[in-house]
Design a binder for these strands. Structure first.
Lengths: 327, 327
DNA sequence: ATAGACAATGTAATGGATTACATTAAGGAT
DNA sequence: ATCCTTAATGTAATCCATTACATTGTCTAT
């Protein structure tokens, strides 16, 4: 691999001039510039990112931390992040954490080592203290997940309100026995959506009890299906199910299909997220649309501001109730 | 951020000794080692990856190139890649190319600059010459997609055979009019699967014509649905559909559901890949199981061998016909 | 003709780590 | 007491690019 020295030697100039051609072309005479550029072409020279970053401590890379790419919820967010990052001359590295600290640390090391200029985190399981500590030194933005105590910047939606609206919608449809398939409450969104659900039930003076709420093992189709199965065994005569994630709802719907329970006639079901697949189920799924693409864009914009040292405000985006066939 | 110099100064030793503590601890006296380690702890020192890589030209990172993470087909492959890479002390960077050369080049630059030690490519649209050129200098392995002319290493399945078996299975079920929803033939797998499909039809002496084969706009649910729609408009009375990808099949199935066509009674449908979703549809989808996880593991193993300069053989893994409710 | 201004280019320090080679000190053999 | 071996540590070159500062040369104004 040729270096800047090789170019300089071959072009009969100093390395400084070559570097100028690269970074500030107007500072070198046209004749010299063309000569240098010709040599660069000729020997297929590309500046070493390593050398450059070492000198400038800037990499124009962002790290995007997500639990797993298997959750389709992230797809459109990543789309938005990528698009906006590229527009602004940044590239992104997609990093799966599997919610494991060892994995997370690997990526934080990249940050500490200036292999990345900032982090967009969508992993809610990150160690909070560590994160706050890092956020003092490096630009970090939370996307979709965020922390209550405001010590970290975030962009998200109002999960509580969305869940409240969905539950209220189901109540208005005449349902009075509505189960909630929730995610692990270690996720803030799980806690928020549960609160919204309860608020609606209380407003409608429904006589519910804790058994209406079921926590899925994880956020996967299987877990959703299994949750539905155990709900059906109980014989509690629910007429509607609200799952806090489309993935769970789709799993649940599958179980209803298997058992031959007609949706929405015998049982209504609603999800959350509006992932692509939610429109492919039979029947299609009523859900909450999160502005995922926009959330990704916003996260990057916030992050770039942070790299410039500017103050950024947290952002809460609008969501939307999408009524389809399953309710 | 503290440097190795800071540690050396504070511990009263030379930078060489600090470096030895890091890379070859047995070469330094226990007393000194402990002292140095204490200082490292104290000032929260972490070696600069940049500095290290610049010196050693090794990064222990692999780049994984895929068109888009939205295609669930990649999920399990990535799982296998990641697992195996980590086991061997490597980390991976997931890179979406969107099949665009500009994007691909960004990541190849990382490779050229030693920010990564090798590439696993799952993007079939890469410029072949460029790739062959790069493969002379850097370890590159193709995963799932591969090139006919054997100039690049690959791990894949026998798509032609799988498609042949699926088609033959449908024929044995008594279907005689089987449409193929294909992907763009720029993908090798699309060409291969078409060949397998045709071989079966010919073996069964089916009087088919070109109109039985439809090329989807891209590989997405929508494209599958649209393909089905246009097939139905034609009034050609197919009794079975074979889609070369589950994503397409699921879109097609959706359209059948919408039109109230019973599956499999009035129309059978089969997919390819066995993605997680394929078991969540109603009815569940007959498909070809690719050993995706294993494919990912194998790709990494091959790549590691290559980084060591060893010769590697191409690998073709076994697939399996998964018969479910849709046929 | 000479000083001053300015454009173009070069020199050398710098960023953070690794490592070949040099140096020092301690212990063992005679 | 002297020489040799060996373990422990240090010195300095190196990887590649950027950039502050120094130098050279050309042109203008007086």
């Amino acid at each position: 691999m040729p270096t800047i020295q090789d170019v300089a030697r071959k072009a009969g100039v100093s390395v400084a001039t070559v570097s100028r051609v690269l970074n500030n072309p107007s500072a070198v005479a046209e004749k010299t510039r063309l000569q240098v550029q010709r040599v660069m072409e000729e020997i297929d020279y590309a500046p070493s990112i390593l050398g450059r970053n070492l000198r400038t401590s800037e990499s124009r890379m962002f790290i995007v931390l997500l639990p797993m790419i298997s959750n389709p919820f992230y797809v459109n967010i990543v789309e938005g992040i990528e698009e906006t990052a590229i527009e602004n001359g940044y590239n992104i590295l997609l990093c799966q954490t599997h919610s494991k600290p060892e994995r997370q640390n690997v990526y934080f090391e990249l940050l500490r080592n200036r292999l990345a200029d900032g982090v967009i985190s969508m992993d809610p399981t990150l160690n909070k203290e560590k994160l706050i500590h890092l956020a003092k030194q490096f630009p970090i933005v939370h996307c979709s997940e965020y922390d209550k105590d405001k010590s970290l910047s975030y962009v998200t939606i109002d999960s509580e309100l969305a869940a409240y609206q969905m539950t209220r919608y189901l109540l208005k449809q005449g349902h009075t026995r509505i189960a909630l398939i929730n995610a692990d409450e270690k996720f803030l969104y799980a806690r928020e959506r549960k609160r919204g659900y309860l608020r609606a039930l209380e407003e409608y003076k429904i006589d519910y009890d804790e058994s209406w709420i079921l926590t899925a093992r994880d956020v996967s189709f299987d877990a959703g299906q299994q949750s539905m199965r155990s709900l059906l065994q109980r014989n509690q005569k629910f007429t509607a199910i609200f799952a806090v994630s489309d993935v769970l709802a789709i799993g649940a719907l599958k179980e209803l299909n298997i058992k031959g329970i007609r949706v929405p006639e015998e049982m209504a079901i609603a999800g959350f997220d509006k992932i692509d697949f939610s429109n492919m189920t039979y029947p299609s799924l009523t859900t909450i649309s999160q502005p995922m693409y926009k959330m990704g864009c916003t996260a990057v914009e916030m992050l770039i501001k942070k790299t410039r040292g500017e103050k950024v405000d947290d952002v809460i985006l609008e969501h939307e109730l999408i009524i389809r066939e399953s309710t």
